[in-house]
């Protein structure tokens, strides 16, 4: 959608007016919005990547992560500022996981930051539950026929993070180096194979 200064004008004015009125009435504090922006700015796919790298290198952590995703993230200091839960879905040789919210745009924001535009728009939301293989092909991701696809439609209080498979042949990387390989798109499930050599995906 084209950006249009005049069009944005009334909505920005409305946002400012609502925020000021709520503050004047004492319903929100003057610092609430600024603080929450700091919270949001601190959340990005780097957090999810750190969780994945830790799971790859610490089997006991991985076990806890698969049992209760939110609690395991909280161990790493990734607080959840809302009431959502987190289920971490592990990709295997036999199973590929994909996440969508057909009804709106539910996304594991505390651990991945804000979702990409395409995740929130109709083509992704309509097609992920109906033709996931064809949709993934548009990301350059081909899922073999002997691999089962599991599409999770997150419409309730649970959010999802995909735990991609660890690439082969990279045994001597540090956790930070491993985390640098993990992309946002792999943690949503539109990408399956992570590139071991640091190529940008």
């Amino acid at each position: 959608m084209a950006r249009d200064a005049e069009r944005d004008g009334i909505f920005e004015v409305m946002e400012t007016a609502v925020r000021e009125l709520l503050t004047d009435k004492g319903l929100i504090a003057a610092t609430d919005i600024r603080r929450q922006i700091e919270v949001l700015d601190s959340r990005s796919p780097a957090l999810g990547a750190a969780v994945v790298a830790r799971a790859w290198t610490d089997p006991a952590f991985k076990q806890r992560l698969l049992e209760n995703g939110r609690m395991a993230c909280e161990e790493l200091g990734i607080t959840f500022y809302d009431d959502t839960q987190l289920i971490v879905l592990e990709n295997t040789n036999e199973v590929h996981n994909l996440v969508v919210c057909t009804l709106c745009s539910c996304y594991p924001r505390p651990v991945l930051g804000l979702p990409p535009d395409w995740y929130k728009l109709k083509p992704y939301r309509a097609r992920a539950v109906y033709e996931p293989r064809q949709l993934l092909a548009e990301f350059g991701t081909v899922i073999p026929d002997d691999v089962e696809i599991r599409v999770s439609d997150s419409t309730a209080m649970v959010r999802f993070l995909i735990l991609p498979q660890r690439p082969a042949g990279i045994d001597d990387l540090t956790t930070d180096q491993l985390a640098a390989l993990v992309t946002r798109d792999a943690m949503i499930g539109v990408v399956r194979d992570l590139v071991p050599s640091g190529a940008v995906m």
Binding site: E131, P132, R133, I149, R150, V151, S152, D153, T155, A156
Partner: peptide
């Protein structure tokens, strides 16, 4: 459906 018989949809229902 254009995929494999093993493909599945998972969702939370109240």
């Amino acid at each position: 459906y254009r995929g494999t018989d093993n493909d599945g949809l998972y969702i939370e229902i109240f």
